[in-house]
């Protein structure tokens, strides 16, 4: 398989399909769990700590409740792996999508490659930012 257009096309479909799943999970976690919900993934031990400790910490310092929740997820190795995957899929799919739009709209070969490079660099920078944020998050609260 060459890297002309066919593999990129296929990859865009594969990442799209995977995002369907990962984005659903992300939504659940960061909107339901971070919001009113407590029960779900953490109860089977996927978080950085057990639920009882988290609850106790949240009650002791309500101002910090949300941060504790975030840390509970963010610091856990499993969710780090998940977030790295999710960010990679998201930035690839998103920025490749922008590149596809540029390929359509920008007809001049020179401008097209300039625009594509800008998109490529932005994508990589953002991806690195995201990965660094996820990996480097180690607050040791628990």
């Amino acid at each position: 398989m060459s890297s002309r257009g066919s593999s990129a096309w296929l990859l865009q479909r594969v990442t799209g399909a995977l995002l369907f799943i990962t984005l659903g999970t992300h939504f659940y976690l960061y909107h339901y769990f971070m919001g009113p919900g407590m029960w779900g993934f953490d109860s089977i031990g996927f978080g950085a700590t057990d639920l009882a400790t988290l609850k106790a910490m949240m009650e002791s310092n309500p101002e910090m409740a949300k941060y504790y929740k975030l840390a509970h997820l963010f610091a856990a190795p499993l969710w780090k792996v998940f977030d790295v995957t999710f960010i990679s899929l998201g930035t690839y799919h998103g920025f490749y999508g922008i590149k596809a739009i540029i390929d359509d709209w920008v007809t001049h070969d020179g401008w097209r490659s300039v625009a594509n490079w800008v998109v490529y660099i932005c994508g990589v920078v953002l991806w690195v930012m995201g990965i660094v944020a996820v990996i480097s998050f180690n607050p040791e609260l628990f």
């Binding site: 975030l70 963010f74 960010i87 930035t91 953002l126 930012m129 995201g130 660094v132 944020a133 996820v134 480097s136 998050f137």
Partner: peptide
């Protein structure tokens, strides 16, 4: 991603 990197 930008805000997340700040949050962390």
């Amino acid at each position: 991603i930008w805000s997340m990197s700040k949050m962390s």
